[in-house]
């Protein structure tokens, strides 16, 4: 991908809010949360929200790293692998009780939800996104 900073942030917000939400709606009922459906949705959408808010901050770091690249590009693999530190940080926040409105979220449920969401968002960003948004890829990932 060839993002600009604002393109990164816009794409992050759009994809998590749209693609991430649709996927979370679909997958949450089958996650091994051990809680009621309402509580499960509360937890998974909280994960999505935290990934989105922290993600905007992560994007500043990625943009900084990108400056050391001659091509000023962001290889496809980076977009996939950054899920590892991001996922771990979000998990530590949830497991450590830093998200006050969530009592507990079992590890497997978090892992399935986070990994599948990350993969789908990454896949959409690397191709299908260009279909409805024909200007998106030449505008550094900006939507507006």
């Amino acid at each position: 991908m060839l993002p600009t900073l604002s393109g990164r942030i816009q794409t992050r917000i759009f994809l998590l809010a749209v693609v991430g939400s649709i996927w979370t709606l679909i997958i949450t009922p089958v996650l091994p949360t051990g809680a009621s459906l309402a509580a499960s949705y509360g937890a998974t959408f909280s994960v999505l929200l935290v990934v989105l808010v922290l993600g905007v901050l992560w994007e500043f770091l990625y943009h900084g790293i990108q400056q050391f690249r001659w091509e000023k590009d962001w290889p496809t693999l980076f977009g996939l692998l950054t899920g590892i530190p991001e996922g771990l940080l979000v998990w530590f926040l949830f497991a450590g009780g830093a998200i006050p409105w969530i009592d507990s979220l079992p590890g497997p449920a978090f892992a399935i939800h986070f990994v599948s969401t990350w993969l789908i968002v990454w896949l959409v960003a690397n191709g299908p996104m260009r279909v409805p948004f024909i200007h998106w890829r030449i505008n550094g990932g900006r939507l507006i």
Partner: peptide
């Protein structure tokens, strides 16, 4: 050495902007 005839981001990213 360079992948293409310009740094890649001229086709959409930072350098284009």
């Amino acid at each position: 050495y360079q992948g293409f005839n310009y740094p890649k981001s001229v086709w959409g990213g930072q350098l284009k902007q």
